[in-house]
């Protein structure tokens, strides 16, 4: 007993920090989600499940939940697909440019996602580069709608998430012994099979970590769906923003936030389960 207390001693500051940084705000959010809001955003003290019942009993909000989930899942999958070869190259190349290339890959992290999203608006807009090019070669009469819809959001999210995913994958590859791939080759595996049977399964911890992080960041991302969705892509994060800052219905915003935290929880659980399967 005493020893347990003594052992906890050095952890106390960390525990306190966790409590202040995570537990308290979450507790406050939970409490707020049980309050009521009367017309025009007035906050009323109460203990009611009304906000949750409204969310769960309304096809519109369930649709928002569903859309958020598949948007984040699809963005993660696209990000993984594009980042995997890039990360594999960066992890394996012996080029003297390797450091430079790695920095180049991760550099977008230094630029705010707002600015990067603006960049995509320049590229994807009706007067943007892509449509300009299509017009130039007379492929399209009317501009293609590449943004202000879900397509634009997915393109933007994928790009925003790629550095994060690439970092997670590179970390995963670093723990993969290249000798294992040589062993596979010596046993008769052509490059494709080496990738499928050895590299991919052994990089699963990195894949899973990267996917978890991009999923969580995507589903909670606000800027990209807001700016590239043209207001048409209603997801949990944009709904929270609207309820908190436009309709001023804080209790409902809190309830949606709690739902979002619950989605994180489920994602984390799936991650843990998959990790147990793949951790060797």
């Amino acid at each position: 007993m005493k020893r347990a207390v003594a052992a906890a001693g050095p952890l106390a500051p960390a525990a306190l920090l966790t409590a202040i940084a995570f537990v308290l705000p979450l507790a406050w959010l939970l409490r707020l989600s049980l309050d009521r809001s009367s017309g025009g955003g007035m906050l009323v003290d109460a203990v009611t499940a009304a906000n949750y019942l409204r969310f769960l009993g309304d096809g519109f909000y369930l649709g928002v939940l569903w859309r958020s989930t598949w948007m984040a899942a699809l963005a993660s999958a696209l990000t993984l697909l594009l980042s995997y070869p890039l990360a594999l190259f960066l992890a394996r190349t012996r080029s003297r440019w390797r450091g430079f290339l790695a920095v180049l890959t991760i550099a977008p992290l230094l630029v705010s996602s707002v600015v990067r999203t603006f960049g995509w608006m320049v590229i994807l807009g009706d007067q943007g580069w892509v449509n300009g090019l299509l017009r130039l070669v007379s492929l399209t009469a009317a501009p293609l709608r590449l943004m202000n819809n879900m397509l634009g959001v997915l393109i933007g999210l994928t790009e925003v998430m790629m550095p994060v995913m690439t970092l997670a994958l590179i970390a995963g590859f670093a723990r993969l012994d290249p000798t294992l791939e040589e062993a596979a080759r010596s046993l008769g595996a052509p490059p494709r099979k080496v990738l499928l049977r050895v590299t991919l399964p052994l990089s699963m911890p990195g894949v899973l970590l990267g996917s978890l992080v991009t999923f969580v960041l995507s589903i909670s991302s606000f800027v990209t769906p807001k700016l590239l969705g043209g207001g048409r892509v209603a997801v949990l994060a944009t709904s929270i923003y609207e309820e908190a800052l436009e309709t001023l219905n804080w209790p409902f915003a809190a309830a949606i936030s709690v739902v979002l935290v619950a989605v994180f929880g489920v994602a984390l659980m799936l991650y843990e389960r998959a990790m147990r399967r793949w951790m060797i």
Binding site: F118, M121, D126, Q127, N148, K226, L227, G229, G230, G231, R232
Partner: peptide, 16 residues
Amino acid sequence: QTWQATPDNYTMIING
């Protein structure tokens, strides 16, 4: 076209 003019619709009208 958009319900979320960025940075705002005044600017988007100015730049066409």
